[in-house]
Amino acid sequence: MNESGPAIRVRKLRKSYGGVAAVRGIDLEVAPGEIFAMLGPNGAGKTTTVEILEGYRDRDDGEVRVLGTDPGRAGRSWRARIGIVLQGAADQPELTVAELVGHFASFYPSPRRPAEVIDLVGLTGKASARVRTLSGGQERRLDVALGLVGSPDLLFLDEPTTGFDPGARRDFWAVIRALSGSGVTVLLTTHYLDEAAALADRVAVLSDGVIVAEGSPAELGGRAAGQAVVSWQEFGGTRSERTTEPALLVTSLVSRFGGEVPGLTVSRPSLEDIYLELIGGRP
């Protein structure tokens, strides 16, 4: 096992289902301790990619190393080093939170203390409550506890804050940052741009089975930040133009209108604008 190498290394990954290509040649590299976000619309290939990395799915082609091991051939000792946060802890409705977390701890060679993990996700007050009595947000935090209790070196988080209220989301982000601070590598998939921007050291945007952009959230924003969008009212509608020299365009508009330009705005594209453009306008 190559411990000094990247936590995840993917080269030319391909996967298709019945002739339909879901992943069309993805390269990825995630460093130990990094929070890496995969962003993209449904059907972009996020889930397929992550499930191949988790060892749930076979690949058609390409090279994959997760913690130095091929997930397609990995054994129990590899599984003991990864944590997978899956949605739907309510599948054991009659067990208590403490029982379920304690039970999952029994699978691992050196688990974290269940009470400590329950505290980390903020469920201490619910430790002796049956799983079926939890709210949606509490269930998701239990999912996270089950993914963490084995003390993983690498944590997979799939859409972790779907259904959270804003306060719970911020608490959750703090948990993930604390984990990352303790050396755990995190691979996150999300629909939410703000989540990727708030958490991730690096972001990859997937569309149609390929990575269309990769970099830190600031870089992704910066790439297009050199451009501005100037828009104004003319001919009974809104016109807009993208330019690297907005002041020049505004000057020419001023001279054309002979003074004030109706409805004039000059804006820099937000991360969201850039994201939407990258994925071809599909939210």
Binding site: G33, S151, D153, G181, S182, G183, V184
Partner: peptide, 13 residues
């Protein structure tokens, strides 16, 4: 990289 940053993580890695 993972061993040095051990705040909150258990010793056995």
């Amino acid at each position: 990289s993972t061993a040095q940053a051990s705040a909150g993580a258990p010793a056995a890695t």
